[in-house]
Simulated scan of single mutants.
Amino acid sequence: MSLESVKAHFKKWNRENDVQVFEQSSATVDMAAETIGVIPARIAKTLSFRGEEDKAILVVAAGDAKIDNKKFRDTFGYKARMLTAEEVVEQTGHVVGGVCPFGLAKDLDVFLDVSMKRFETLFPACGSTNSAIELTCEELEEYSYAKDWIDVCKGWNEEQQEATA
């Protein structure tokens, strides 16, 4: 059902046939990178957090980025608390390993982390543990109906920070 809802979502842009379905699992960043043949950083992972009033928020980030709790709290005004696997399915309609900001079960706020802006294209999942689509940052923003670009991650630009320090 989840893969179908994502394909239906992409029909609006005639992109449903661009969704790739793989024989093997792409449920983790490393598995997806190996399956697709790209570096892990180019996998756009969707992280699900408890928002306000029992509504989840989604943060899409580069595969090598990790949530920075201080930046998250400064941005959203509350602590980063990830959803349980059951809550993820209830809020997004997607299973863990296939979570994406497309074809969602509920109308959720989607935010894109700046960690992805260093790439021409990225590969978010498409609602199943063996699917993805190649998108530019602009397409990802448009197709996910993202509210904003934010900076809530660490770990992806440490080399850059060390070089400028």
Rank of each mutant, 00 (worst) to 15 (best):
T84W: 03
Q91C: 03
D109Q: 02
Q24Y: 05
S115G: 04
V110D: 12
T46Y: 14
H94S: 03
T75E: 08
P101Y: 09
K79R: 13
C100S: 12
P40V: 05
A65E: 11
V38E: 01
H94G: 14
D107W: 01
R73L: 11
L83W: 10
V21L: 13
E23A: 08
V114G: 00
S25K: 05
E34D: 11
K71F: 04
Y78H: 12
V38S: 10
K45G: 00
F76H: 14
F102C: 06
D64A: 04
G77V: 15
A27D: 05
V29L: 06
V89K: 03
D107I: 01
E23P: 08
D109Y: 02
I43R: 06
E53W: 14
A56I: 00
S26K: 02
L108W: 00
E23Q: 14
R81E: 02
S25D: 01
K55H: 12
G97S: 02
V59D: 00
E34G: 15
D113F: 00
Q20W: 13
L58T: 01
R118Y: 03
P40S: 07
F49H: 06
A44C: 08
V89N: 06
D54W: 05
R42V: 05
G77M: 10
M31H: 14
I57N: 00
R42P: 14
E23C: 08
A85S: 05
A65I: 13
K106H: 05
K45I: 03
R50V: 13
G37Y: 05
G93K: 08
P40E: 15
V21K: 13
V95W: 04
E86A: 13
Y78K: 10
P101L: 12
N69C: 15
D64K: 10
S26H: 05
R73Q: 02
D109L: 00
L104F: 07
